[in-house]
Amino acid sequence: MKAIRIAALLALTAAAPALAENPMVGGAPMFEDKNIVENAVNSADHTTLVAAVQAAGLAETLSGPGPFTVFAPTNEAFAKLPAGTVETLLKPENKDQLVKILTCHVVAANAMAADIGKMIADDGGMHTIKTVGGCEFTAMEKDGKIMIKDGQGNVATVTIADVKQSNGVIHVIDTVLLPAM
Rank of each mutant, 00 (worst) to 15 (best):
E76S: 15
L62Q: 03
N94D: 07
A83W: 13
A79S: 10
F71I: 11
N75D: 15
K80C: 03
K2A: 06
L177D: 01
A3T: 08
F137V: 04
A77T: 06
G26A: 09
A20G: 13
P92D: 13
A83H: 12
K100Q: 14
A156D: 08
D123T: 06
Q54H: 01
G27K: 08
L9I: 14
L102N: 04
G168V: 07
F68G: 01
K91S: 10
G125D: 03
E141C: 07
M181D: 13
M1E: 13
K164S: 12
V41Y: 01
L19F: 14
K145N: 15
E60D: 15
A156H: 05
K164Y: 09
M112L: 15
M30A: 04
V53I: 15
V106Y: 03
G153H: 13
G133Q: 08
L62N: 02
A20D: 13
V176L: 12
D122A: 12
I101Y: 13
A8R: 15
M181T: 00
V41G: 00
L177A: 01
T48Y: 07
A44N: 08
D143L: 00
E38N: 06
D122R: 00
K149W: 09
M119N: 12
P179S: 04
V37S: 05
D122M: 03
I36Q: 14
L178G: 03
V53T: 00
A139G: 10
A109I: 05
I116Y: 02
C104L: 06
I4H: 05
V86N: 01
F137I: 04
Q152A: 14
V86I: 05
P67R: 05
T103K: 13
G168I: 03
M147R: 15
K91Y: 01
S43I: 04
K91H: 08
I160H: 05
Q165G: 00
A121M: 11
T61M: 09
G168K: 12
A156S: 09
L102V: 08
A56V: 05
G27R: 07
A20M: 11
G117D: 08
I36H: 11
L62E: 12
F71Q: 13
L102K: 01
G153Y: 13
K118H: 06
E87S: 11
A28S: 11
V163M: 03
A79Q: 14
A121K: 11
T61A: 02
D96F: 06
G133L: 02
A28E: 10
L19C: 12
I129W: 10
T175F: 05
A156L: 07
I173R: 05
V158P: 01
L62P: 11
T157P: 05
M30R: 04
I129H: 11
T85V: 09
H127R: 07
K91A: 15
A18L: 14
M1V: 08
A14Y: 02
L19W: 15
A51Y: 03
M147L: 13
T128V: 12
T159V: 15
A72N: 10
M140C: 06
E60P: 00
V172R: 10
Q165D: 09
K80V: 00
G64Y: 02
G26Q: 09
D115M: 10
G26F: 08
K2N: 09
F31P: 00
T157D: 12
L62V: 00
T131F: 04
P92K: 14
E21K: 10
